[in-house]
Design a protein around this nucleic acid. Structure first.
Lengths: 226, 226
DNA sequence: TCAAAAGTGTTAAGTTTACACCCATGA
DNA sequence: TCATGGGTGTAAACTTAACACTTTTGA
């Protein structure tokens, strides 16, 4: 098919690079991979994969993430494409950058050794290959915007979470403190976040109420706001 | 160079598609091209170009736009990449979508005949090739967000403009009316928009004050806000 | 008994919205 | 002289930000 019309145009290697975020030790963390092959062997870089024939770019990302995290159907959002000629000095490679949000409790830390991976707090990232530090910056901005607009950040928390956990997550994402009482008010008014009967005793002696996200209520809320 | 490391991976045709906006007849308009070649000859589509070897994707867009509009150094922003396998039924083509903002007064309407192009109000778009109607929707959202965040929308107005012109532009972008007095207040408080001594007499008998965007003041404002 | 995290309301400041009339001028 | 678009201020509603003490309980 293709040959009929577009045979004369140049073709390119295309990869996906993904900034995988989790919430760990009250900080945002990013999963990096230490390359064990040339070029740039030993460099820290983002989980990536070359796009295959007959594979959508979203699928390429999921495949790369499954390989490194063992998880499937991860929340991903495409951010943008990096297409400068010399961004990778070894070859002309067009990169499509995504971010992903995962729940660290679903991640098996034993994978780090097997896969040459490591979680780094976003405030303590090493120098990454090529333009990947810029990618992380851009990904953080987009993720911050998206989590302020939609409750996708909850994917970095357990299914049941306390308001304190959510508070710390939001502070980590926005990189600034929020008043505790005002924050609790906002959560209590977000009616798609529902209080359960359960109590978390792990983080305090007194115990804290556990909340959960209700997708049905959220969909309803989306339909009826304005 | 490339051959050393990545020879085994598949390669892809890559195009850029660009949603070119202008402000015309008090409406947002999009520039469409009627294809004069197969496949899909005769279909309306976005100005596009195949990426060349040794050409950045931003440059590809500028090249496509120069060809269709005769203009150079147009304001562009990349939105995202469309990479589904069957998005173009003729071939696997990865498309990187941009939007562009141009001043219709810089555009020579005689080009339309020569280039098979036509401006369409965004509210009256025809059915476009493949996934391009979705591209336009996504581009409008991004452009709306960006113009609310930064004064880039002014690129669709003349260098000197009246508050009424800006008012109508903003209403067209946001697709909803704004109170006239409140709007004027906002403009007068945006101190990088400065009133000139000049008067526009073309749109009313009384005449309206002409304003202009001051890049220097805007840069200063960016540095000093928070 | 005390350290540590959970939980709780009110007020001030700031922002956004709503709203109606006079002005200047060329045709 | 009148039709047309230009120009003007205030008050109410709403949203956001600031702020400090009491509760519970396991160690």
């Amino acid at each position: 098919m293709e040959k009929l019309y577009y045979v004369d145009y140049p073709k390119f290697l295309v990869v996906t690079d993904c900034v995988v975020f989790c919430f760990k030790d009250n900080q945002l963390n990013v999963l990096l991979v230490k390359r064990d092959f040339e070029p740039s062997k030993g460099a820290w870089c983002l989980p990536s994969a070359f796009v295959n024939e007959n594979e959508s770019i979203d699928h390429t990302v999921q495949r790369a993430l499954a390989a490194k995290t063992g998880l499937e159907d991860i929340f991903i959002e495409q951010v943008r494409c990096f297409g400068d000629v010399d961004r990778d000095p070894n070859a002309r490679i067009i990169s499509i950058m995504y971010y992903a949000l995962i729940n660290i409790h679903h991640y098996d830390e034993k994978l780090n050794k097997r896969n040459n991976t490591k979680w780094f707090p976003v405030k303590e990232l090493p120098t990454l290959m090529y333009d990947q530090n810029e990618m992380v910056e851009v990904a953080i901005k987009r993720m911050r915007y998206r989590t302020m607009e939609k409750p996708v950040g909850l994917r970095m928390l357990p299914h049941l979470f306390t308001i304190s956990q959510l508070h710390k997550l939001v502070e980590a994402i926005e990189d600034k403190p929020r008043d505790k009482r005002n924050f609790r008010k906002v959560v209590e008014e977000a009616y798609y976040i529902e209080k359960t009967e359960k109590i978390d005793k792990s983080s305090s002696k007194r115990g804290a109420a556990l909340y959960r996200f209700n997708q049905r209520l959220y969909d309803h809320y989306l339909k009826h706001k304005l």
